[in-house]
């Protein structure tokens, strides 16, 4: 019995194998690819983008095939040309006004982050003002909130470790905010003039915008160096609390780095995403919040 079965298998195998080979050849039909970049200026009818003959760039010639059973390589991404991106509709995106300040930079890993001095002395405003960012080494085992780590589950025996940290931080923050609020709402601090806002109000506005935008910012965890990029977006708001225009400052600085460009665009999309608007801001204070500078930095989310 067993022998018969083995025999059957051999038959199937012998007949099957050539099929496999044949399939392989079919799959490996030579691939000839020509590639041209479609012009970005799609709104110019004089330049029919679908016709490669009108291209200013030379067409990439199909490479001669070396081997009939081997796919001819498609063009490499290096052939791709991404011209400066025009903004066909200024309504939403807007043109950047001259803006000297640029904040897109790659932070050096070795640079420690500014960290708030934990002690806040309510009665010493001057000292308060002087509270320069201090440098503090990063905790080595702190992981991104967004990055899964099963190890946490079995390092539980150490209750003081990182997993506990977040829980503890929450109440601490509240009390800290309360402290600040206490300081800032002292009569000496807030000006009585009606056309001015208190620091508390200012704080609240910033918080409102931040809280509203965060859910719309799709960051990319796991991207190499994602945590080191800071993108600064300037925006003008309408009185109804919606973004009227927004632009990444000095966008051209990362036009040549696909990764930074992508990061900048996530920030721009976050600001332009109407799903997160309007911001609930006091219309009477429109003068205060009509222009906003937003600085996007996922660093803290990555925790390193």
């Amino acid at each position: 019995m067993s022998v018969t079965l083995h025999g059957a298998v051999v038959l199937v195998s012998v007949f099957g194998l050539p099929h496999i080979q044949r399939d392989l050849r079919i799959e490996d039909v030579p691939m000839v690819v020509e590639l041209v970049t479609i012009s970005n200026e799609t709104n110019l009818p004089s330049q029919p983008v679908h016709d490669p003959k009108h291209k200013s760039e030379p067409e990439i010639q199909p490479k001669p095939k070396k081997n009939a059973s081997k796919p001819v390589p498609p063009p490499t991404p290096a052939n791709e040309v991404v011209p400066p991106v025009p903004l066909p509709d200024p309504e939403a995106a807007g043109n950047p006004p001259p803006q000297p300040a640029l904040k897109v930079k790659s932070k050096l890993k070795t640079e420690p982050k500014p960290v708030l001095k934990p002690k806040v002395k309510p009665k010493a405003p001057k000292r308060f003002a002087k509270a320069k960012p201090t440098r503090k080494p990063k905790p080595p085992d702190e992981f991104a909130a967004v990055l899964k780590n099963l190890a946490k589950e079995f390092t539980k025996p150490h209750p003081t470790q990182s997993s506990e940290k977040n829980k503890k931080a929450e109440p601490a923050r509240h009390s800290f905010e309360q402290q600040i609020a206490k300081v800032l709402t002292r009569p000496r601090v807030s000006d009585a003039a009606s056309n001015r806002i208190t620091m508390t109000e200012r704080h609240a506005m910033i918080n409102t915008i931040r809280t509203a935008i965060q859910p719309c910012w799709n960051i990319q965890p796991g991207a190499k160096g994602a945590q080191d990029i800071v993108v600064v977006v300037r925006a003008t708001l309408s009185p109804d609390g919606r973004i009227r225009r927004a632009w990444v400052t000095n966008r051209s600085a990362f036009q040549n780095d696909p990764f930074k460009l992508a990061a900048a665009e996530t920030a721009q999309r976050a600001v332009l995403n109407q799903a997160c608007q309007p911001f609930k801001l006091d219309p009477r204070k429109y003068d205060v919040w009509k222009d906003v500078t937003l600085s996007f930095n996922p660093n803290e989310m990555f925790g390193r």
């Binding site: 079965l5 083995h6 059957a8 298998v9 199937v12 195998s13």
Partner: peptide, 14 residues
């Protein structure tokens, strides 16, 4: 192939 492999497996198990 799957069928073939199952045959073979059965055969070998025996």
């Amino acid at each position: 192939y799957l069928v073939a492999a199952l045959f073979l497996a059965t055969a070998c198990a025996e």
